[in-house]
């Protein structure tokens, strides 16, 4: 007798594809936020599957801090070309030039927080009524309560106490003019699920996820890549190490880990044995115990 069981990856994929199709059906002008990181790559890959053999019926949006690892942008362009999707770029540099945001100064300066303004501006400019993101509930405790369909008011704010209950697989995307939604198809995935899926589907990823020799320095116990965008202190000498990145964000606040994992299989072994969460390398989360919750209320990813 045939057994009708799905593996957990098949079930998670079926759920994500269902969510992506709901977005296309319920919204007029959706967009997929694409950072070039593994989570948004996985979401884009499933968007391709969800609408195949048609093209993805919405553009990909990259909020570009200007402080990228060079590998990320090259990867982004080739990935999107192969996907046959359109790309919209929201530029943090432009927001700075237009005086909408003021750049942080000093050794710990980061453009991470500035992204929120650029993101909301891009959403407004293109009249996007839904922005699909690759956030996962296991990443951070404020995200553990996020909905698949997350309502944002006309200032782009998230109100954690007034979220719509989400039952069964029925998603309520109804909204008033000016409001928009954030939708998170891989809410139920963990870091491990993402890597396993990348392995299973043979998805291409930026090379900096794999172990490589890199010029780095140590700040507050975090391994940072040397770049033109970070001022190093005299006490922070450049050294060469074999490292890889567990997340890809703005180069100024994304730390690396020492690693020999130069294949996806080895990364999976490493993740299985890991002793710290992947956001442990993100200095933007360390600013206070509720740093993520505060940024999300203002309209962060």
């Amino acid at each position: 007798m045939q057994s009708y069981n799905l593996t957990h990856l098949q079930e998670l994929e079926a759920e994500a594809i269902y969510v992506l199709r709901e977005v296309a059906a319920q919204f007029e002008r959706p967009a997929l936020l694409f950072s070039g990181g593994k989570d948004s790559i996985v979401v884009a890959h499933m968007a391709r599957k969800a609408f195949w053999p048609a093209r993805i019926p919405f553009p990909l949006v990259h909020v570009d801090t200007g402080h990228n690892f060079p590998e990320t942008i090259a990867f982004r362009d080739s990935f999107i070309e192969k996907l046959g999707a359109t790309l919209v770029v929201g530029s943090v540099q432009q927001s700075i030039d237009e005086g909408k945001v003021v750049e942080e100064k000093g050794y710990n300066a980061s453009r991470n927080a500035l992204q929120t303004v650029t993101l909301l501006d891009t959403i407004e400019e293109h009249k996007f009524d839904c922005a699909i993101g690759g956030a996962r509930r296991d990443e951070e405790k404020a995200r553990a309560k996020e909905r698949f369909f997350s309502h944002r008011d006309d200032f782009g704010q998230w109100d954690p106490k007034n979220q719509r209950p989400e039952l069964w697989n029925i998603f309520n995307g109804k909204k008033h003019v000016g409001e928009h939604f954030r939708v998170f198809p891989i809410s139920n995935w963990t870091e491990m699920d993402v890597w396993q899926y990348i392995l299973q589907e043979k998805i291409e990823i930026p090379s900096i996820y794999l172990a490589h020799e890199r010029d780095v320095f140590i700040r507050d116990g975090v391994i940072m890549s040397t770049t033109d965008f970070i001022q190093q202190r005299d006490t922070e000498p450049t050294v060469s190490m074999k490292v890889r990145f567990r997340t890809i964000g703005d180069a100024t606040c994304t730390g690396a880990v020492e690693s020999d994992a130069d294949t996806i299989e080895k990364i999976i072994e490493e993740v299985a044995a890991a002793r710290t969460t992947e956001r442990g390398t993100r200095s933007d989360d360390k600013r206070s115990e509720a740093a993520m919750e505060d940024r999300k209320k203002q309209g962060y990813f």
Partner: peptide, 29 residues
């Protein structure tokens, strides 16, 4: 399992929170 700041302050859970773990046999939500 304490999620949002409001909860930490009041020491109660105010909404559905999702957690994940896995054993070699199953993934749990």
């Amino acid at each position: 399992t304490d999620g949002l700041r409001a909860e930490r302050e009041q020491g109660i859970t105010i909404d559905v929170a999702y957690r994940y773990f896995a054993t070699p046999k199953r993934k749990f939500i």
